[in-house]
Write a protein that binds this DNA or RNA. Structure first.
Length: 271
DNA sequence: AACTATACCAACCGCGAATTG
DNA sequence: GCAATTCGCGGTTGGTATAGT
């Protein structure tokens, strides 16, 4: 039957009635065993489908609607730090699910970064071949319609390439600090290390977003940016910002580097 | 008005980790 | 200690809405 799997379980979109049944059941009995939830609740769904529906849609305190620019910026910052750890990123955005964050990234943020000349995977400036590759893959009609944006992206790149050289220096300092500081943290997954902070702030500039991370219990620790930090700007203002590469937040990275804050002792303190 | 392309989002799938017996 | 089961996560797909031609 269409819409049912081989076990006769229903697949596809949930109906309001199914939602009501699931919510009622979980409110009364909880969900200690997802596998048994559908049978006990009287739903013709698999447990996995119930769990997904609950965590991504029905759970209390889910925040629906558009992401604010602050939330978008935070996702970019966290992605630079954690990579595709959507659940970890979502934990820092109250009311948002990993699925929502992932969808936002794949549908909008990734493209925005590419337009700004930033590699969405590494968060580093795109090299020419990589830029062409991504631009081709993304088929940006708006870029094509506005050749100025391509020029802007390339200008951003030249600005960023200089920054990249400095970031290599930073990496060197980090490695030195790691090598000379025997600590368990050095061998840990940085995402795990991050998730144990109560809060952290990106960069040292005044534009850093204060990131409140609830329900975590260790000492707050400022974490510097791991990569040039692109700032998402409103579409309506994008052109104005981009036409002046020197005014981008890459400058913040420069300041961070030039200020000597990213020296080996700095990283040793962090570690 | 009809068709096509694109963007967005909900849901599914498969895999690895954690838990249980 | 090990196999089976359950859960959580990230990647991907498919449906729908909207914009563009």
């Amino acid at each position: 039957m269409k819409g049912n799997d081989k076990n006769g379980l229903k697949k596809g979109p949930w109906t309001p009635e199914e939602d009501r049944i699931l919510v009622d059941y979980i409110h009364k009995h909880g969900h200690s065993k997802w596998k048994s939830v559908p049978a006990l609740a009287g739903l013709n769904r698999c447990g996995k489908s119930c769990r997904l529906r609950w965590t991504n849609y029905l759970r209390p305190n889910i925040k629906r609607g558009n992401f604010s620019s602050e939330e978008e910026q935070l996702i970019i910052d966290l992605h630079a730090l954690m990579g595709n750890k959507w659940s970890a990123i979502a934990r820092h955005l109250p009311g948002r699910t990993d699925n929502e964050v992932k969808n936002l990234w794949n549908s909008r943020l990734k493209r925005k970064l590419i337009q700004m000349g930033i590699d969405p995977i590494t968060h580093e400036p795109l090299t020419d071949p990589r830029l062409h590759q991504l631009l081709a893959a993304a088929s940006f009609s708006n870029l094509i319609n506005n050749p100025l944006d391509i020029v802007n992206a390339l200008m951003l790149q030249s600005d960023a390439v200089a920054t990249l050289a400095k970031s290599l220096h930073l990496s060197h300092n980090m490695l030195q600090a790691l090598a000379s500081t025997p600590t368990p943290m050095a061998s840990q997954d940085p995402t795990k290390a991050c998730s144990t902070s109560n809060e952290y702030q990106f960069g040292s500039s005044s534009s850093s977003l204060p990131v409140n991370v609830p329900n975590l219990d260790t000492t707050p620790q400022p974490i510097p940016p791991m990569a040039p930090r692109p700032t998402i700007v409103d579409d309506h203002h994008e052109t104005n910002n981009i036409t002046n590469p020197s005014s981008t937040t890459l400058q913040e990275w420069d300041d961070f580097m030039d200020g000597g804050e990213a020296s080996e002792p700095y990283w040793r303190d962090i570690i």
